[in-house]
């Protein structure tokens, strides 16, 4: 059975099903990260005065700044990939979608350097509550980056076959995967100052 309303808008919602589905999913994601941000807030306000470290005294701010730029850039390439499909330029889509996936690898590579340096210095999630929440939040965010990369790589590769048979449906898929990717970027925009700079 074919999934209905993948391209046409449902009369009652005014949206195609994929669009409303991804937004509902993102709403649940906001609550998932919200719970962890609340945990951070509780642990920080509950810590003995003066015992909570400033992020930049433990973490590598220059590397995280580069990662912020990488992720922001990947959001632009993602939206450019979608815009290329809207302009019927599949070659450009492939280029921008490929760059988005590569940026994901770049982000994870830098995160790997950060994590391994911490472990090398004997800094683990069990070391203190700051590192516990740092590794939990950035670890969960990293898993989202991997998930987004998998979807984007699929749409760059085998999933792109749909462009030949149903270009509008394919364009909607790219838009929806883009919404997830931008959300991952948005979470990082808050994680960066909260964990590294305050």
């Amino acid at each position: 059975m074919e999934i209905p309303y993948t391209v046409a808008e449902r009369p009652d919602t005014g949206l195609n099903n994929g669009k409303i589905g991804i937004w509902l999913f993102l709403a649940s994601e906001v609550m998932l990260f919200g719970a962890l941000f609340a945990t951070y807030l509780m642990m920080r306000t509950g810590a003995v005065a003066g015992s909570w470290p400033r992020g930049d005294s433990i973490l590598n701010v220059p590397l995280a700044t580069v990662n912020t730029v990488v992720l922001i850039s990947s959001s632009v390439t993602m939206v450019m990939a979608w815009a290329s499909l809207k302009r019927n330029n599949f070659a450009k889509f492939r280029l921008f979608q490929g760059l988005t996936v590569l940026a994901g690898f770049g982000f994870l590579g830098i995160k790997y350097v950060e994590y391994s340096t911490k472990f090398h210095h004997g800094l683990f999630p069990s070391t203190n509550t700051f590192l516990a929440i740092y590794f939990t939040l950035t670890g969960l965010h990293g898993l989202h980056v991997i998930g987004g990369m998998a979807i984007n790589a699929y749409l760059w590769g085998p999933g792109a076959k749909l462009w030949k048979t149903d270009p509008e449906h394919f364009t909607n898929r790219v838009e929806n995967s883009g919404l997830f990717w931008h959300f991952v970027d948005l979470v990082w925009i808050f994680l960066f100052p909260v964990l590294y700079l305050l």
């Binding site: 919602t13 005014g14 949206l15 669009k19 409303i20 937004w23 509902l24 709403a27």
Partner: peptide, 8 residues
């Protein structure tokens, strides 16, 4: 669309 604003 409005529905998205309601969800958010």
């Amino acid at each position: 669309r409005k529905l998205i604003y309601w969800v958010l």
